[in-house]
Simulated assay, not measured.
Amino acid sequence: MEIKDSVIVITGGAKGIGYAMAEVLANEGANIALIDSNQQVLEKAAADLALINDKCQGYCVDITDEELISDTFNYILEDFGKVNVVINNAGILRDGMLVKVKDGQFIDQMSLEQFQSVINVNLTGTFLCGREGAKAMIASGQQGLIINISSIARGGNIGQTNYSAAKAGVSALAVTWSKELARFNIRSAAIAPGVVASDMTASMKPEALARLEKAAPVARLGDPQEIAQAAKFIIENDFYNGRTLELDGGLTL
């Protein structure tokens, strides 16, 4: 797919990996629709992108709200006339052990709310945006692509019952959608990053960060721009479909 003049929707697009993807793709001539729940950060991101390509716009919305997401994709169609790519990047972390035990006594557990909140954003939000994005692609008669941002944690990781389940789910959605949507000329794929430099990793204790860097054979964290380059590759390579691209520096959790 040609990136230039494509309309690319990116959830969680106002900062971090989402903004890095928006910036790289805008520099390639893409028209960007950013979806984010933080109005202030979203406005700044959209303004910065407009300096690269004036056909960039932000939409402040909670991706877990079915009605709002449906309306938002209708607004995007009105504003841009089409949708070519949806990148489901929005996500949250609420890590914790399934159960905590000390001296034979249960002292804590992952609450249902802690589990469900991550599932709601990371998995249900991806489902809703993928569904509405596919409808917009079909309605506007476009060659399409959905990219779900998964994680190497999808294979299971200590302290991440909720996050691992959600990220395994979005990889499975990518495979399922690649089969269901092929007849509409829509591809679907996923990217599974390892540990990437971000606000979250910057706030970690130096010793914990050093352990993460040492664990990867490349001996460093990933850069958001490297994830953005992976998205660019998937968009441009029409034979890439139904697969999850691991981009983790060789890290094994």
Rank of each mutant, 00 (worst) to 15 (best):
V7C: 13
I10K: 08
A14I: 10
K15M: 14
K15D: 13
G18V: 08
E23T: 10
G29Q: 06
A30Q: 03
N38A: 01
Q40D: 09
A50K: 08
A50Y: 00
A50N: 01
V61H: 00
D65F: 11
L68T: 06
I69Y: 08
D71W: 14
Y75E: 15
Y75G: 12
D79T: 12
G81S: 13
K82L: 15
V83I: 15
V83W: 14
V85G: 11
D103S: 15
Q105S: 14
Q109W: 14
S111K: 11
L112A: 12
F115Y: 11
V121M: 09
V121Q: 03
T126Q: 03
L128E: 02
A134L: 08
N148D: 05
A153N: 08
G155M: 07
G155L: 08
G159A: 03
Q160D: 00
N162R: 01
Y163M: 07
Y163D: 04
G169W: 05
L173Q: 07
A174P: 08
V175S: 05
V175M: 10
K179D: 11
K179L: 14
I186T: 05
I186C: 05
P193R: 06
V195K: 04
A197L: 12
A197I: 04
M200D: 01
A202M: 15
P206E: 08
K214L: 13
Q225R: 13
Q225A: 14
E226N: 08
A231C: 13
I234M: 05
T244P: 08
G250P: 09
L253D: 00
